[in-house]
Design a protein around this nucleic acid. Sequence first.
DNA 1: GTCTATATAACGATAGAC
DNA 2: GTCTATCGTTATATAGAC
Lengths: 211, 211
Amino acid sequence: MMRKAMNRVHQEPETERRILCSAEKVFYRQGYDGARMQEIADEAGINKALLHYYFRSKDRLFDAVFSDAVLRLVPPVFAVMNSDSALMDKVRGFVDAYFSTVSQNPFLPGFVVHEMHRNPSRFSEIIKESRLLMLEGLQHQLDEGAANGELIPMQAEQFILNLLSLCAFPFVAAGAMQSVSGKNDAEYQQLLEERRELIPQWMSRLVECGA
Amino acid sequence: MMRKAMNRVHQEPETERRILCSAEKVFYRQGYDGARMQEIADEAGINKALLHYYFRSKDRLFDAVFSDAVLRLVPPVFAVMNSDSALMDKVRGFVDAYFSTVSQNPFLPGFVVHEMHRNPSRFSEIIKESRLLMLEGLQHQLDEGAANGELIPMQAEQFILNLLSLCAFPFVAAGAMQSVSGKNDAEYQQLLEERRELIPQWMSRLVECGA
DNA sequence: GTCTATATAACGATAGAC
DNA sequence: GTCTATCGTTATATAGAC
């Protein structure tokens, strides 16, 4: 015997998904403190009380959004860095993976960076396993290249910091950087798109001796 | 005839300064939405009502802090970039000026970047005059060097974006980057300090043909 | 100027009808 | 599962005594 009629759609998962999607929009732009439950409910086209029915509190709703954000941003990027590719192939793969994810969610990097302190354990938990692997592999490639005279010596931490800075900062600080560069929205987005090709070239100049 | 006795200190400017200082601490760390007037009052060792006596509202108090922040961060940096120095001397001057300011206020870059949207006009107003001057001068030096075969061709906007990314991002995203690099506070600060010397070298490798 | 006490509004969360 | 109505708390802001 069926619990529900066929033409009365079983809506719960659909609603939960729509709430998460709306919460994402609001939290990404306004942060935890700036976000209002009412605004999320409006965005989802439902009542405020329903948010508490699906997610018990603002905190839990935020945690769900934050975890999704970290999972969306970090693992694809670590997957590339922990492959057994050559150094510059890793860089190209990283930049491609990063821009693919972030171009569709321009507020994602800023959100993660700014809300980091609210859930630091959730973040480090996700990257923990991959981190050591990445840094060790990276340092090994850098040291090997330096011994061969092909690369200039560099700490793996500085290498990854440079790569992430060049990729992420223009998104994180888009507001300020648009003022500095004097570009409108479309022009700035064009500037960002160009970096997708340029950053791998720049990274190669940073570390390769003959570049 | 004196309006006040000599031994009863005229305290108003002192109090206002202390409020601004406390507001700075709280706003820098917690942002506008996360900051509480009570916390600012506690930090200043005064009553909450006194905040409204000196600054009419939370908004006005924030504006004062934000303007101070932008004025502290931007003009010294533009001064260097708008001098008539050689390109790489500008870079070295910029990095020195930036790190000098920011090392003493590690939360300053993240604060300005995140609260940008709340007062975009105040920001662009301050950089407006300097911006065009800087970009024109920079582009001229880059083009000239490229014509001489000394520099690889680069847009001034990308150049400044790279420089700012390498300098600012490690501060803005310190929380996340500490997890990624696996360093504790002291170790990460050491990593940052090393970049003060390294970034000019890296920027030179980015643009100079023979580097 | 600085305080205490309070007004007013907003927000997160819950109760209960349907 | 979704709604309306409301509670309890906290935040900004003001009034008024000293």
